[in-house]
Amino acid sequence: MMSSSDAAAKPWPVNAWYVACTPDEIEGKPLGRQICGERIVFFRGPDGKAAAVEDFCPHRGAPLSLGFMREGALVCGYHGLAMGCDGEALDMPGQRVKGFPPIRAFAVIERYGFIWVWPGNREDADPAKLHHLEWAESDEWAYGGGLYHIQCDYRLMIDNLMDLTHETYVHASSIGQKEIDEAPVHTRVVGDEIHTMRHMENIKAPPFWRMALRGAGLPEDADVDRWQVCRFSLPSHVMIEVGVALAGRGGYDAAKEDKASSIVVDFITPETETSHWYFWGMARQFGIDDAALTDTIREGQAKIFGEDLDMLEQQQANMLRYPERRLLKLNIDAGGVRSRMMIDRALEMERA
């Protein structure tokens, strides 16, 4: 059980759904992953459903993730104790283990191509609190993505994604351009989300979006209208609507045949106070049957996010080096600031 004092000491909400892994990561084997400070092992039970228990064998304390699967049971790789999906000890060669106290089990959901975990109290887990992702259930979208393990506070990644001004500098060779700096930024609260928006008109597309225009069957050298709409939602998700449309055709609202639009998918799962798991990807509505285009976009995104990774890890190292320094806030930081305020309110509610 997670006590209120445990939650108070951590900078993340625990009564929420976080992406834990992708289905392929637990295909026929257990996966150990630390999430929100909890060491958890994920696996599939005898019915094929995803399950999660604490990564601790009650016999001698070995990580259960070092074991293996046998007929839906998780078998410890140290002495062979078999564990069930509810954290109960099932059997062990030559031993009577039915009386062992159970280890902690976590609530999990498999949906939208991901396995989600609720790090807080299992009995409080509410499937209705998992955000609906229309793009993950529709045949009108294609998706490709990946995973990075990043050594920085998860909130630094949220700051990064809610202020895309950095693209001009960090991603100068792919998605950055000077017009990003020049376009005004608008931030507002929309329901239970924070939105930060930027629109640019009559510009040339940067290299990544020239490639996207080609993939959408549009002229890559045409003047375009470009948009970025960043949407933060609890506990730590950022969906970014991005795209370019042929100039004068309506921009964000242009017809599908006149634009290359997509959603940059960012699931940010805290690991420790200074590290997180970053599940990234792009859902798009152009060239959806083009597998080669999916691979090209994935490779391009991997390079772009790799540049973010290096900057964020260096930023975290510097902040640890100078903990007394206070950071300045500008109007472009409004999206990140308001997102952090929403996280802080969620933490206050949990502590209450």
Rank of each mutant, 00 (worst) to 15 (best):
A73C: 07
K29L: 06
G176Q: 09
N160V: 09
A317F: 15
R70T: 07
L246Q: 01
P30N: 04
M342V: 13
L320Q: 08
A125G: 04
I288N: 07
I158Y: 01
F232N: 02
E182F: 14
C21Q: 07
R198C: 02
K98Q: 09
A73E: 08
A7C: 11
D139G: 08
Q314N: 11
M342I: 12
T296C: 10
Y322T: 12
L312F: 10
E110I: 05
F56T: 05
Y278T: 09
D55M: 08
T168P: 13
I175E: 10
T168H: 15
E220S: 09
I35L: 14
W116S: 04
W227I: 00
K259E: 05
A50P: 04
K49E: 02
L330R: 14
W135Q: 00
D163C: 08
K329L: 08
A352V: 13
K29Q: 08
E220W: 03
E313W: 05
A7F: 14
Y148N: 03
G67E: 08
T196E: 10
F286R: 11
W17T: 10
Q177I: 03
A283N: 06
V242G: 02
A52L: 15
G287F: 13
V117D: 04
E134R: 10
G113C: 07
Y112E: 00
P46L: 12
P46I: 09
D225M: 05
G243P: 02
C57L: 14
H166W: 04
K178H: 15
M197Y: 07
P30H: 07
A50E: 04
G281K: 10
V14C: 07
G146T: 01
L147R: 11
G250N: 09
E273D: 11
L327T: 10
A128E: 10
E201M: 14
Q151W: 13
P93S: 13
G217Q: 10
P63L: 01
Q177D: 08
D192S: 14
S233P: 02
E167I: 12
P102K: 11
I240A: 09
D308I: 06
E241L: 12
E193N: 15
G251Q: 06
K329N: 07
H171L: 02
